[in-house]
């Protein structure tokens, strides 16, 4: 498949899956708070299309796009949001804790910044094993204010780890703009200060990110150290949930307007011949509908699943007094 077709297929899948999730959300069928990536899909797609299936990604609670872009199972993602036993964590994690190790999706976190260090640890493991796999750490502009960001950049530079840091800068941490939180807004410059080659990717540009990631991956696979991208983007909807949030007054619809006008899903789609684009869209529509149907038809996990997977190594002695209430 041609690159533009691959990019569009991934972009369109994420957009449509999330739009449908947004429509279902008010019905209360989805049992987990969702943080939609709508508007930001180009970052995950541009990066992940330049990776191999055995490369590894770590991300955030706004992780649907990364999960899907890296090849995470769509049925399992939607079922997870429904809280069903067929979900990617069998109903234990929900939307904010997606995982698909078979696709190299090693987990997302609801605590800002935490997976940056986890990604670096896996990068260390791969380097020690002399693997040529690459790790990508996705995080937001808010995470760049956490101590773990600075600590991990220093360690990655020190050990020359095979990792790409991708800061998805959408300008807001929940409802607080970056200019209210950072004395100096150039996040990439901070990474550069640790000795990590850093690039700002402007304009939510999927193709530029694809090219930059391709170069970074080549460099890392041939023994190079970490690379940092500050990818500028914009969150179209509210922090959590399917709605818009302009009524809160912290940002103006005019600010979003250019991002919508330059929608990367539409722009990449327009690069394809109409017939090809329509065929891709039809395929994705069927895939998304099937995923929703799969989630609808799946069962909730039985009560007996409550105490599964607390420990990977079990011993006869319980860790505490037995729960009083026994599952039926």
């Amino acid at each position: 498949m041609l690159l533009n077709e691959r990019l569009y297929k991934s972009l369109y899948r994420i957009r449509r899956a999330e739009e449908e999730i947004g429509k279902i959300y008010p019905t209360d069928k989805i049992k987990s708070p969702v943080h939609l990536s709508i508007g930001q899909e180009a970052i995950s797609v541009g990066v992940c299309e330049a990776l191999r299936p055995d490369d590894v990604v770590f991300g955030t609670y706004r992780g649907h796009a990364m999960y899907m872009a890296k090849g995470g199972n769509l049925n399992a993602m939607v079922a997870e949001m429904y809280g069903k036993e067929t979900g990617c964590t069998s109903g234990k994690g929900g939307s904010m804790h997606l995982v698909d190790p078979d696709a190299g999706v090693m987990g997302t976190s609801a605590v800002v910044g935490t997976t940056i260090a986890n990604a670096a640890g896996t990068a260390y493991a791969l380097k020690l094993k002399k693997s040529d796999q690459v790790v990508v750490s996705f995080f937001g502009d808010g995470a760049s204010e956490e101590g773990v960001f600075a600590e991990t950049l220093n360690f990655a530079a020190l050990k020359q780890l095979p990792i790409i840091f991708v800061c998805e800068n959408n300008g807001y941490a929940i409802h607080t703009s970056q200019c209210k939180r950072q004395g100096r807004p150039e996040i990439a410059a901070r990474a550069e200060a640790y000795g990590i080659p850093s690039t700002v990717i402007e304009g939510n540009d999927c193709l530029k990110l694809y090219d930059a990631t391709t170069s970074a991956v080549e460099s890392i696979r041939s023994g190079g150290g970490p690379v940092f991208f500050e990818a500028q983007t914009y969150r179209w909807r509210e922090h959590v949930g399917p709605n818009e949030d302009f009524h809160l007054g912290f940002r103006d619809p005019a600010e979003r307007q250019p991002w919508v006008e330059n929608d990367e899903v539409a722009r990449i789609g327009a690069l394809l011949p109409d017939a090809d684009r329509v065929a891709i869209e039809a395929e994705i529509e069927a895939e998304v509908a099937a995923a929703i149907e799969f989630a609808e038809q799946s069962s909730f996990p039985p009560a007996s699943e409550l105490m599964t997977y607390v420990y990977a190594t079990e011993y006869a002695t319980p860790s505490a007094a037995a729960p009083v209430k026994k599952a039926a």
């Binding site: 260090a117 986890n118 670096a120 640890g121 260390y124 493991a125 773990v148 020190l158």
Partner: peptide, 21 residues
């Protein structure tokens, strides 16, 4: 030995474990 970064270095241990170490 590591940098004086207990938070990150603990996260790194988790990542190492996920990476098979």
């Amino acid at each position: 030995g590591t940098p004086l970064s207990e938070d990150s270095m603990t996260g790194v241990a988790i990542g190492m474990a996920l990476g098979g170490l």
